[in-house]
């Protein structure tokens, strides 16, 4: 079971260069890298981009969550190579033939390009993930103008998850004691869904109701609430944001223009 530990704990040791870049800039960097990988269809360019993302990730000493995500996607990329290598509609050039099964160059290239894009996205996102923490992100988002309510919602998601996983374990235990056994057949499995999910949902919603009442009592809805201003730790924020956003717009425009020009 994969719990979102990385976002809950984040990285403790971020004193290096990564800590002077603000979270929004990091997110925009990830977005731009992903968009770049979509603008090119050349495998070599894609490999270069993977390399760039990997270097950023390595020099920031952040790699654990990337390994996880790559593991998660690699099986799918593997099946993509096989399916496209065999059946891609533009397949023409036979590359290899293994015991009568023919792999074609076009399909393999197409799948490899897509696989690289996935890697670029994973690596770029991992850089953001491992070099920021939940509290840093939410503070910064509130500073740059996201509504404090939205920030509250995002924050509480991260705290509610471990609590709910623990509740689920407790409920499963209580129901096992009432005779829901180790589920083997599909019928047993289906029968065991509601006894666990009903108490879990009701308990979770009950806690939400309590939180909501507590928030209201503390005047959370009051329009006079002001965001905390904290000391600014980051460098060149505005320049970074504007520059990277502009790049993103240009890349999207470029891609759209390429797609559009095919139809004309």
């Amino acid at each position: 079971m994969n719990e979102p530990n990385s976002i809950l704990q984040g990285s403790v040791a971020h004193r290096g260069w990564t800590s002077v870049i603000d979270p929004v800039t990091k997110l925009l960097m990830a977005l731009d890298l992903a968009l770049l990988s979509f603008c090119f269809t050349n495998l070599l360019v894609e490999i270069a981009l993977v390399f760039v993302a990997l270097v950023i990730l390595l020099i920031s000493k952040a790699g654990k969550s990337a390994v996880h995500a790559i593991e998660f996607s690699s099986f799918l990329i593997f099946t993509m190579l096989i399916i496209q290598g065999l059946f891609y509609s533009h397949n023409q050039t036979l590359l290899v033939s293994v015991v009568g099964i023919r792999f074609y160059q076009e399909g393999l290239l197409y799948a490899a390009t897509m696989g690289c894009r996935i890697f670029v996205i994973i690596l770029a996102t991992s850089f953001f993930m491992t070099t920021t923490t939940v509290s840093e992100n939410s503070k910064y988002l509130e500073q740059v103008g996201l509504s404090y309510k939205a920030v509250y919602v995002l924050m509480s998601v991260c705290y509610i998850l471990p609590e709910m996983m623990a509740n689920m374990k407790k409920i499963q235990m209580a129901q096992r004691a009432r005779g829901i056994n180790q589920q083997k057949t599909i019928l047993e499995k289906i029968k065991s869904i509601l006894p666990v999910l009903v108490p879990l949902v009701i308990k979770t919603l009950d806690q939400s109701m309590e939180r909501s009442i507590a928030l209201r009592l503390r005047g959370f809805n009051s329009p006079h609430r002001v965001a905390l201003k904290s000391a600014n730790l980051y460098r060149h924020e505005m320049v970074n944001h504007r520059g990277l956003s502009l790049l993103a717009i240009i890349l999207i425009g470029w891609k759209l223009w390429i797609i559009g020009s095919k139809f004309i």
């Binding site: 709910m164 689920m168 939400s208």
Partner: peptide, 26 residues
């Protein structure tokens, strides 16, 4: 976005997450 909805949303996300884990576990 009432306070009720504000606390409902994280709960819903949590239910999504845990239900998915539950289905995977079974």
């Amino acid at each position: 976005l009432s306070t009720a909805t504000m606390t409902l949303i994280p709960a819903a996300v949590g239910i999504n997450y845990v239900a998915k884990a539950f289905a995977e576990g079974l």
